[in-house]
Amino acid sequence: MTDILLILGDTQLMSLFTAAAFIVVGLFAAIFLDNIIKKIIGIAFIEEGANLFIVALGYKAGGVVPIFLPGMSADWFAANSAYPLPQALVLTSIVIGASTLAVMLAISMVLYKKYGTLSASEILGDKKTQTLAEKNAGDNNE
């Protein structure tokens, strides 16, 4: 019981577990789900997990935010602040993730207009799927 409490109290370890859970769930969604939007959401989860992982690396239990305020001594700050480098990196990668997501959603909107479905196995499989235009042409012929 005390072990579990110790683990639960360790914020860094728990954050790493959370990040792992995000990545696993995201990979599952990106690989096994058929709907393109859900695949894209899964990808967003993977990216979120990676970000959380990197930020959690810089955490220091009982530390302070890495902002150097007047009145702090340099030695104390160096010993007690969280590591700021991972945070700086994650800022960039959040933005990259969002832009990738936006591009993918835009492409899936175009593909929906063409095929009338969001199923990845129909749109992105190797079999030729009828586009909406072809379907309409077929209906008119009948």
């Binding site: 990979l27 990106a30 690989i31 990845a120 196995s121 992105l124 499989g125 190797d126 079999k127």
Partner: peptide, 12 residues
């Protein structure tokens, strides 16, 4: 082939 499922399968 160019199917996404196969490519993902091999990647994983």
């Amino acid at each position: 082939s160019d199917s996404l499922e196969k490519m993902t399968f091999y990647a994983i």
